[in-house]
Each structure stands twice: as structure tokens, then as C-alpha cells.
Amino acid sequence: SLSVDNKKFWATVESSEHSFEVPIYAETLDEALELAEWQYVPAGFEVTRVRPCVAP
């Protein structure tokens, strides 16, 4: 099958004044980091952490 098993990760994104967490959907932690950097670094943010979303 061609289905992709995307998992939810939380990326911590920082600017000079703010820090916030955004959801990233990817297959692996490395891919989540790449996606977060691709989305947020060009906008002037720094991705400081990516972690798996742990269900309660």
C-alpha cells in the first residue's frame, strides 16, 4: 500500500522574543526536524527542539 504512517511531533520554534511549539507530521524524528527547519528557518525562526508527541 502507499499509505504513509505519519506521526505527530512537537517542534519548539524560537524567535528573538518568543518561543512556541508547533505540531509537525512526519514519519521519523529526522524528517520532522527537516520539515520544521524548512518551514520556519526562512521566516527567521530557530528550531531548537523536536520531540515525539506522547499520547496521554
Rank of each mutant, 00 (worst) to 15 (best):
Val22Leu: 04
Leu35Met: 12
Glu34Leu: 13
Ser3Leu: 07
Ala11Pro: 01
Val13Leu: 08
Pro52Leu: 11
Lys8Glu: 05
Ala55Ile: 12
Glu31Tyr: 05
Glu37Gln: 14
Lys8Gln: 10
Leu35Glu: 04
Glu27Lys: 13
Leu29Val: 07
Val13Asp: 00
Cys53Lys: 01
Leu29Pro: 05
Phe20Lys: 04
Ser1Leu: 11
Glu21Tyr: 06
Leu35Gly: 02
Val4Met: 12
Glu37Val: 13
Glu14Ala: 08
Val41Lys: 14
Val13Phe: 06
Ile24Pro: 01
Ala26Thr: 01
Trp10Pro: 00
Pro23His: 07
Leu33Ser: 05
Val22Cys: 07
Ala32Glu: 01
Pro56Gly: 12
Val47Gly: 01
Val13Arg: 00
Glu27Leu: 11
Ala55Tyr: 13
Ser3Glu: 07
Val22Thr: 03
Val50Asp: 02
Arg49Pro: 04
Arg51Leu: 07
Asp30Arg: 14
Arg51His: 06
Glu37Ile: 15
Tyr25Arg: 04
Val54Pro: 13
Ala36Val: 06
Ile24Gln: 00
Gln39Val: 13
Phe45Arg: 00
Phe45Tyr: 13
Asp30Ile: 10
Tyr40His: 03
Glu21Val: 10
Gly44Met: 02
Asp5Met: 13
Val47Thr: 01
Val13Trp: 02
Glu14Phe: 07
Pro23Asp: 05
Thr28His: 05
Trp38Leu: 13
His18Asp: 09
Phe9Arg: 00
Glu27Cys: 06
Lys7His: 09
Lys8Tyr: 13
Ser1Val: 10
Glu46Phe: 08
Tyr40Ala: 04
Val47Phe: 00
Ala55Asp: 11
Cys53Val: 09
Asp30Gln: 15
Tyr40Arg: 07
Glu46Gln: 14
Asp30Lys: 14
Val41Ser: 10
Trp10Gly: 02
Val41Trp: 09
Val54Glu: 07
Ala26Pro: 02
Arg51Phe: 08
Gln39Tyr: 14
Gln39Pro: 03
Phe20Arg: 03
Leu33Val: 09
Val4Ile: 13
Glu34Asn: 11
Pro42Arg: 08
Pro56Glu: 10
Pro56Asn: 13
Phe20Trp: 08
Phe20Leu: 05
Val54Asp: 12
Val50Thr: 02
Ala26His: 03
Phe9Lys: 00
Val4Phe: 11
Cys53His: 12
Arg51Met: 07
Leu29Phe: 06
Leu33Ala: 05
Glu14Thr: 14
Val50Leu: 06
Val50Lys: 00
Glu17Phe: 12
Val41Thr: 06
Leu29Ser: 06
Ala26Asn: 00
Tyr25Trp: 14
Pro42Gly: 08
Arg49Tyr: 14
Ala36Tyr: 03
Thr28Ile: 02
Arg51Thr: 10
Ser19Leu: 05
Tyr40Trp: 14
Leu2Pro: 14
Leu2Phe: 13
Gly44Cys: 04
Val13Gln: 01
Glu14Met: 13
Trp10Ser: 03
Pro52Lys: 05
Glu14Asn: 07
Asp30Glu: 15
Leu2Cys: 15
Glu37Ser: 12
Ser19Gly: 03
Lys8Cys: 15
Ala43Trp: 14
Arg51Lys: 05
Ala36His: 01
Ala36Trp: 03
Ala36Asp: 00
Leu2Ser: 10
Val4Pro: 09
Ala26Leu: 01
Phe45Ser: 03
Glu14Trp: 12
Pro52Phe: 09
Val13Gly: 00
Ser1Gln: 12
Ala11Glu: 01
Cys53Glu: 13
Asp5Phe: 14
Ala11Met: 04
Phe9Ser: 00
Lys7Val: 08
Leu2Ala: 09
Lys8Met: 13
Tyr25Gly: 01
Lys7Gln: 08
Ser19Ala: 06
Trp10Gln: 02
Thr12Leu: 13
His18Asn: 08
Thr48Asn: 04
Leu29Met: 10
Glu37Gly: 05
Leu2His: 12
Asp30Trp: 14
Ala32Tyr: 02
His18Gln: 12
Val47Asp: 04
Ala43Leu: 15
Pro52Thr: 06
Phe9Val: 00
Ser19Met: 07
Asp5Pro: 13
Leu33Lys: 13
Glu27Ala: 13
His18Arg: 09
Leu33Tyr: 13
Val50Gly: 02
Ala36Leu: 07
His18Ile: 13
Glu46Asn: 09
Asp5Ala: 14
Ala55Val: 12
Val47Ile: 08
Lys7Phe: 11
Val4Tyr: 10
Ile24Val: 06
Arg49Gln: 15
Pro23Ala: 11
Gly44Asp: 03
Phe20Met: 08
Val41His: 11
Gly44Ser: 00
Leu29Asn: 02
Ala43Asn: 09
Ala43Thr: 04
Thr12Cys: 08
Ala36Ser: 03
Glu21Trp: 05
Pro42Thr: 10
Phe45Asp: 03
Pro42Phe: 06
Thr28Asp: 06
Ala32Trp: 03
Val22Ala: 04
Asp30Ser: 14
Thr28Gln: 03
Lys7Trp: 11
Ser3Asn: 10
Ala32Thr: 00
Val22Asn: 03
